[in-house]
Design a protein around this nucleic acid. Structure first.
Lengths: 258, 258
DNA sequence: AAGTGGTCTAGACCACGAT
DNA sequence: TCGTGGTCTAGACCACTTA
């Protein structure tokens, strides 16, 4: 920890944690830091780059360096189906989170194409089989909050409203049920990684910032995959929340996992 | 995208995606890239720093730059209680994930102290109230995979095995049930962010890499918080998996969320 | 001993936004 | 016009690993 740039970064990090610089505040200019620490400009920039990589600050050239804001929207995979009100009613901090639920706007595009390999695998498609893709980009206050692309086996939705780029009353699930494919179960996967350059552009993120990629695959009671959704959630704008209950009549109690 | 360092980074990124350099492979040396592109060494380093921030490569001085490996362990919050076998039996890719479940080793420390503010809030503690903390660091093949710290209100576990730093047969939950606090429900929260310098050190991560912070709060049927666990999961080593089913007798069907 | 990345210097010119 | 960060140059010495 002897390197100068690390000392500078450590000092700034501490000042940010202590509140000397609050969210959205402007840091001293590079030239000011250079003078204060008597180092070359490159050294100051190494320090700032380190804090940027930690997600603490971001540049807004030519205005300067600023402490990043983080504002979490609640992301509730379970409310895809219904809301679990009973549980959360007890919890003020959950209530508060739920109240934030401003209604987002969104863009929608529909496309028919081969899905990525990960999606094809989950929908159990043969190589070359096509899917209907509904691509949504969700905004709150004009700022993109997440990407949500849903993939359906083409044979399942051919000739239905699903392949028309409009909102569907009561949702796509109603149409799928009418086709005889009622979704009865789902598997959610979350992968945590840095945003790709494409995602950075589409979601207006700064480089090096993390996202959660949420893949949700739904099934009929017979185990037929119906839909695979891929959601990309920027870490600084989303808080993922699940609620669970244990069946009082089950044979085993919840245990501390080993 | 005209900057030289971005062109160099783009070229390397493409080669990595195309498989020219596979996971674990060594990239050309900085000197070699400098010659190939006829730029100053600082420019090459900007390019490498960009790819490092994207999580694609990492330095292993003085050996060189290497394509990062990602190896996901499955992280299943629900198996805290029981396993949901029925659903996954249909899914080969889930089966495969489950099979990977090599038994991890772990370290355990117990401490009695005030919890962080976020935990105190979730356990509904008054300022100054203390908790029993069981800190675990989990390893697979000697490599740390995640941090798992569990907090219990001290009054609830005073005088029990919970405050002794040994593994507890059948888990802490058995003890809590004996004390009259059976956990019946839980709220899971996931926050996605860059690891702090402390976490980087504890989990042997490189700088700028993302983690999921999983906070799990459990409750009795009366809504009394029993435990709050904080898990820190490095993104490149964990894949979070949930399974859900919909009640066939419920009034509403799963819908595409708006 | 040779080669690697880690750190640092001391400049330079540029585009862009605010004034 | 001035100040800002963005990019780039052309070096330097260091610690460390491997041969």
């Amino acid at each position: 920890m002897a390197a100068k740039y690390q000392l500078i970064a450590g000092s700034l990090r501490e000042e940010i944690r202590a509140g000397t610089y609050a969210q959205g505040d402007k840091l001293p200019t590079e030239a000011a830091l250079r003078q204060k620490w008597s180092v070359a400009i490159g050294t100051v920039r190494s320090a700032l780059a380190l804090l940027q990589a930690e997600g603490l600050i971001e540049p807004d050239s030519p205005r300067g360096w600023f402490v990043r804001r983080i504002e979490h929207q609640t992301y509730r995979p379970q409310s895809d189906g219904r809301t679990l009100k009973s549980l959360s009613e007890n919890e003020p901090w959950v209530q508060q989170i739920l109240k934030e639920g401003r209604e987002p706007s969104q863009s929608l595009e529909v496309e028919i194409a081969e899905p990525p390999a990960a999606v094809a695998e989950r929908l159990r498609l043969k190589p070359g089989e096509q899917t209907a893709i509904r691509r949504r980009l969700r905004f709150i206050n004009g700022a993109p909050v997440n990407i949500a692309d849903s993939y359906y086996p083409l044979w399942m939705v051919q000739g239905t409203e699903v392949i028309i780029p409009t909102d569907i009353p009561e949702g796509v699930s109603r149409v799928l049920t009418e086709q005889g494919y009622t979704q009865m179960s789902a598997i959610d996967e979350f992968e945590v990684r840095i945003a790709t350059p494409e995602e950075q552009a589409r979601l207006n993120m700064s480089t090096g910032q993390p996202v959660a990629e949420h893949r949700c695959t739904t099934f009929t009671s017979e185990g037929q995959p119906v839909r695979c959704s891929v959601h990309v959630l920027p870490g600084d704008r989303n808080l993922i929340v699940y609620e669970r209950t244990w069946d009082p009549h089950a044979e085993s109690d919840p245990k501390e996992s080993k």
